[in-house]
Computed example of a mutant assay.
Amino acid sequence: MYASTLFASTLFVATALAHGNITSPPARQPGPVMQQVCGSQAVSAILADGTGPLENIPSNGAADCNIFLCKGAQFEDNMKNVQTFAPGEKVAFKAQLPIPHEGPANVSIIDTATNTAVGQPLLVFDSYADENLAKLPPNNTAFSVTMPTSLGTACQTPGECTMQWFWFGTSAQQTYENCVDFVMSA
């Protein structure tokens, strides 16, 4: 209980300090399984700056720890947040971008076994979070994607797929991502 409370409290503080993250739907968070797989340094880095770049998350080199898949956050720590979406459904996203870094971004469905995109991206920004703008366009922090109708039987098992928000700050040379675990209804 204490470990869960510590994770939740620290994560809340860390999220308020960072560069950007998805606030809705619920994104994967670090937890005890991530600590077992990726080590305490990786979890500590995320808890210190919950939406910092992937480049700031140390990898322990373990084969099961893939920082470039959901920042190393493990499905087993996030099973209660699995969303159910229907083919053709519009899914609203909200993002927090306290420190913008201009660069490309997208939202894609990712096969978690191979860390590869399933089909085409659901949304693409050629230029996202441009720090040179006086105010970011509203669609940088509130946007929606339409779930594909062509997945067949893919993404019907929890943990098989995730919807990944991916953003690369070109000048900053920093990579950001969040994952939303989901299943497609039949």
Rank of each mutant, 00 (worst) to 15 (best):
T112K: 12
G50C: 07
L133P: 01
Q29V: 15
N56L: 09
T170Q: 14
C65E: 01
V118N: 05
A62I: 02
V33A: 07
V91P: 00
V183G: 03
G20E: 06
E160F: 07
E177Y: 05
E160Q: 15
S144K: 06
S59D: 02
W167G: 00
P32D: 07
E55Y: 11
L151G: 03
A73E: 14
G31D: 04
T116W: 02
Q164D: 09
L47R: 14
F12H: 10
G152S: 04
D77V: 11
A105G: 07
A92P: 03
A134S: 15
P138K: 15
F75A: 04
Y2N: 11
P25M: 15
V145E: 07
P32C: 02
P30Q: 11
E131K: 13
P30G: 04
C179D: 02
P32I: 06
S59T: 13
A45P: 02
A14S: 15
T114N: 05
A14N: 09
P148E: 06
A45V: 05
S59Q: 10
E76S: 13
F7R: 13
M184L: 15
P121C: 08
A62Y: 04
Q120F: 01
P26F: 09
Q29D: 07
G52L: 07
I109E: 05
A18V: 07
A45Y: 02
N21I: 11
N56T: 11
L11N: 09
Q164I: 08
P32M: 08
S24L: 13
T175S: 11
Y176D: 04
A134C: 05
S9E: 09
G169F: 00
L133R: 12
P25G: 13
D49C: 14
D64W: 01
P158D: 01
